[in-house]
Design a protein around this nucleic acid. Structure first.
Length: 914
DNA sequence: CTAAAGGTCTTTTTT
DNA sequence: AGACCTTTAG
């Protein structure tokens, strides 16, 4: 790899703090990766001394893959790389808080939709009532205000009115009471503890020597606060970003942190990476013509250093009278360019451009519909990931109808008609049987809460109506890009299962009649418009299709061909929004730098800049008059037209370019698997598909959480022993109080489980504490990098070294609780996976795997020898499996023994395909 | 030219 | 559902 002078010096600046301003296409990820390797090359630096924050999980996976690859090439086989943290701020915080403060082990995270359900459920306790906001109607705004107060800074001298102080307090207390984090609290709890908890501080800061923060321009006050606290370890800090690409100010990002970094930290080297290797000279000129109109930016230039040659006609700006003509131009241009020569890398082979090389970048989702129709009319495949029509799909309407029927809103015949509309292949008598089965489950006032189980009803309906995937196969009807129609339907049914789970996880203990009514309201008012269609969630494969996405989503990506349609005033830049806002409840003056939450022309211009700089070679900017609001040309369009590279041409001619076979860019996306997902795959690839791809969630049961609870109790014992504490007289009552979390049970059941846990833990401690000195690891995270972007994560419960009459034997122990484990059979693959995991961790081989059954009556062990000769075999097997997953080769192929005990059998009916 | 009428109205990450 | 922008009427 050849590096420029600046890249080289960025890579080798590891003594000073470092601020890297990297323009678009500057090879940022490569530079960060190589710098991390240089850091690790130092004798006194171990992987555990390094933390690297990225903005998204996807970026994390990419960076991790890249770093591991470079490490393998330059450092050979070094151990413990899993200890180097590369990931998002949120997931690091969660890990830090749960690893060090054990009571947080039982906490789970509320995402947006669950947060809304939670707040509505506890409306009276959570502070919303007392600030005069309306249940349901104002919930979204209330949550926005909570996020603002907790993640932004207040203006100097401002003190929140008491009712708001109270609201924040009640909100957080209610979350704690039910053992929930929201995304903000994950970070604020860590900061709180870093400031006040000495042990926590020592544990977290003790190892930290190098901190890297990517996308630093989009850091918000809480995150900066965290970084500040981490910097007190005197670690070396490197921040990387581009102030011109700040996109999330409305989510409290603040550019000032990157702009003023060198004033806030000492010994800062400041390096600008101003060479763009991505785009042609024309693209870069257009981008510069746009961004230089912004006044608030760090001084910098951008040099065209890539190999893409500009040709006249590469960059076009066209204006049309109506949207149809505008969209038609887009569709026809895609067809014209398909198959034309393109060279990805300098000196690399040429290939023919294909659909997936095109991106259509939008400011608003509303714009997508007409474009999608036009592409469909031209038979151009496309993928969209934000337009929401899930609730218009027949299979979702039919699923919803099951509950409308139970609520007596519709008749049996109507429900039947809904399902018949999904597919003609569903047998009438099967639906009858299904309806009969579920009508027995209609809620009544006397019914016990857990008897009315929404998910269980869904699964029963699928089973009794014999709705296995094959039923929906239909050669006549097309599915959506790369998916057959039966897959699309099953993706959506899986999504519905997740919707049920979101609702049920908050409302499981409601009275059946209200649970049902609440669920229907949830579907109608909240869920509709929130959930994407299921098939869009498939993160394992990228189909060869035109990508329609927002500019935000295109952050960090690049495409040979980019379209930016709709360049009108009020669209880009967007007009200021109306409607009821959070400012109807709170004052703008309270919030520091409040202006950055408002629409600003400079922020919008940055969006346009990001859109332009995604392109490697072809850029098509278009506009047309659409409606009352979209009549005038965007000022940005005028700015960019000043570039000499931009022409207007409604019928560009590319016939002089060489035609090659259209070939999509080969890109093996990073794939992260874990032991339990792999186990599902090894049992039956289709089972993996149902769980991990389609996303079906098993019904909630009252006693759920028992396994984790006992697990966490034992973990704390082991960890405290490893920390040098004598745990033989540990207070088990306290452990039980801290760790037992059974959210779906009544108090009677809960007490019962606490007692059981107490008995099990007491017996375990009594029988085993003498052997605690043999413990090598407790709850050890492992990571296996198999190359080609394939990564496997796993946790090992306990690793012991036992002396068997002079022979030392390493045993990996896996705790099982009878009530929760689905299947006790240990498979050969599972054994080999553990052996592999231990080898990756220590470089040594382990001898045995022990399944330790934690049972109320007595503990029982079952030990098996690990076959270390099978390690290479299992590696191969995992790689093959990962590729099968990427290629969607997920057939129903399990031996009857596995099939008969499989929990997902209800969904697939054990029917084998073909 | 002003006043009234009418049309249209975001972006999304984090386990 | 209130605010903002554009068009139209006079």
């Amino acid at each position: 790899m050849q590096y420029t002078k600046e890249q080289h010096s960025a890579i080798n600046t590891i003594k000073d703090n470092l601020q890297i301003i990297a323009c678009a296409g500057a090879g940022k990820t490569q530079v960060i990766s190589q710098r991390l390797v240089e850091v690790l090359k130092q004798k006194d630096v171990e992987p555990i001394n390094v933390i690297a924050f990225t903005y998204t999980e996807k970026a994390a996976a990419e960076l991790k893959t890249r770093v591991l690859k470079l490490c393998r090439e330059q450092l050979g086989d070094i151990k413990g790389l899993a200890d180097m943290y590369i990931g998002t701020i949120h997931s690091w915080c969660l890990q830090a808080i749960q690893d060090n403060i054990f009571k947080y082990q039982k906490y789970s995270i509320l995402d947006d939709i669950k947060q809304k359900l939670f707040v509505d459920k506890y409306y009276n306790f959570i502070g919303m009532a007392s600030v005069g906001m309306d249940r349901y109607k104002d919930t979204g705004r209330f949550l926005a205000i909570m996020a603002l107060f907790r993640e932004a800074e207040l203006n100097e001298g401002v003190k929140l009115p008491e009712e708001w102080e109270e609201a924040v307090k009640s909100y957080e207390e209610t979350l704690h009471k039910h053992s929930y984090f929201d995304f903000t609290m994950i970070m604020t709890e860590v900061i709180k503890n870093l400031k006040s908890n000495k042990d926590f501080q020592d544990n977290v800061l003790g190892n930290l020597k190098y901190l890297v923060v990517d996308e630093y321009q989009d850091v918000n006050p809480v995150q900066e606060n965290l970084i500040e606290e981490l910097s007190k370890s005197n670690c070396n800090i490197c921040v990387v970003g581009d102030d011109d690409q700040t996109l999330y100010e409305w989510r409290l990002s603040d550019v000032k942190y990157i702009q003023q970094f060198k004033e806030r930290y000492k010994d800062v080297s400041y390096i600008k990476l101003e060479d763009n290797f991505r785009s042609s000279k024309g693209i870069i000129d257009a981008a510069i013509k746009c961004i230089t109109n912004n006044t608030q930016r760090l001084p910098k230039i951008m040099n065209a250093k890539g190999h893409q040659r500009f040709r006249d006609g590469d960059i076009i700006y066209n204006q049309y009278e109506d949207v149809e003509s505008e969209n038609q131009f887009i569709a026809e241009t895609i067809q014209k360019l398909r198959g034309k020569e393109f060279q990805d890398r300098n000196g690399g082979a040429k290939r023919g451009l294909d659909y997936s090389d095109c991106a259509i970048l939008l400011r608003t989702w509303k714009k997508a519909t007409s474009i999608m129709e036009m592409l469909a009319a031209h038979n151009i495949p496309f993928v969209v990931s934000g337009v929401n029509n899930l609730f218009e799909r027949p299979e979702i309407k039919a699923s919803k109808a099951i509950y409308q029927y139970l609520n007596n809103d519709i008749e049996e015949d109507t429900l039947k008609a809904y399902w018949e509309a999904v597919s003609e292949n569903i047998k009438s008598e099967d639906i009858d049987a299904a309806i009969e089965a579920i009508s027995k489950k209609k809620p009544n006032p006397k019914m016990y809460f857990s008897t009315f189980n929404i998910q269980e009803i869904f699964w029963t309906f699928i089973e009794k109506a014999k709705l296995s995937e094959e039923v929906f196969a239909d050669k006549e009807h097309e599915g959506i890009v790369g998916n057959d129609i039966n897959e699309v339907i099953y993706y959506n049914l899986g999504m519905f299962s997740q919707i049920i789970n979101d609702y049920a996880s908050i409302h499981f203990k409601d009275k059946p009649i209200w649970k049902l009514k609440g669920f229907l309201n949830f579907l109608r008012y909240s869920a509709d418009g929130y959930y994407p269609e299921g098939w869009l969630n498939n993160s394992y494969k990228t189909p060869n299709a035109v990508q329609i996405m927002t500019v935000y989503q295109s952050k960090g990506l690049e495409f040979p061909i980019v379209f930016v349609p709709g360049l009108n005033k009020n669209y880009l830049p967007i007009k200021r929004p109306g409607g009821k806002q959070i400012w109807h409840f709170i004052e703008r003056e309270w919030i520091k730098d409040q202006h950055r939450l408002e629409v600003s022309e400079e922020a919008e211009r940055r969006l346009f800049y990001v859109a332009i700089t995604r392109s490697q070679k072809y850029l098509f900017i278009t506009r047309s008059k659409e409606n009352r609001l979209y009549q005038k040309e965007s000022p940005f369009a005028k700015e960019v037209s000043n570039s000499d590279y931009i022409i207007s041409d409604k019928n560009p001619d590319y016939s002089h370019l060489e035609n090659l076979t259209p070939t999509p860019k080969k890109e093996a996306g990073a794939i992260q698997l874990n032991f339990s997902v792999l186990k599902a795959f090894f049992d039956c690839p289709y089972r993996f598909k149902l769980i991990s791809l389609y996303g079906f969630v098993s019904p909630i049961t009252e006693r759920m959480g028992y396994g984790n609870s006992i697990h966490n109790v034992l973990m704390e014992m082991h960890r405290r022993h490893l920390n040098g504490e004598d745990v033989s007289n540990i207070n088990i009552d306290e452990l039980v109080e801290n760790h037992v979390h059974i959210p779906y049970a009544t108090n009677i059941v809960l007490d019962n489980i606490k007692q059981t846990t107490n008995n099990v833990a007491t017996a375990y401690l009594e029988e085993n504490h003498k052997e605690f000195d043999n413990i090598e690891y407790a709850e050890q995270e492992i990571q296996i990098d198999l190359g080609d972007g394939i990564m496997v994560n796993g946790r090992m419960d306990l690793i012991k070294k036992i002396d068997l009459d002079g022979n030392e034997s390493t045993t990996i122990i896996d705790f099982k609780s009878k009530k929760e484990s689905q299947d006790q059979d240990i498979t050969m693959e599972q054994l080999s996976m553990y052996a592999l995991g231990y080898k990756e961790l220590t470089g040594k081989t382990a001898d045995r795997l022990q399944i330790f059954n934690l049972d109320e009556d007595r503990n029982s062990k079952h030990t098996q020898r690990l076959d270390n000769s099978k390690i290479d075999e299992i590696k191969e097997r995992i790689i093959t499996s990962a590729n099968d997953i990427r290629d969607n080769k997920l057939q129903k192929s399990c031996p009857p023994s596995t099939c008969n005990t499989c929990w997902q059998r209800q969904l697939c009916s054990g029917v084998k395909a073909n």
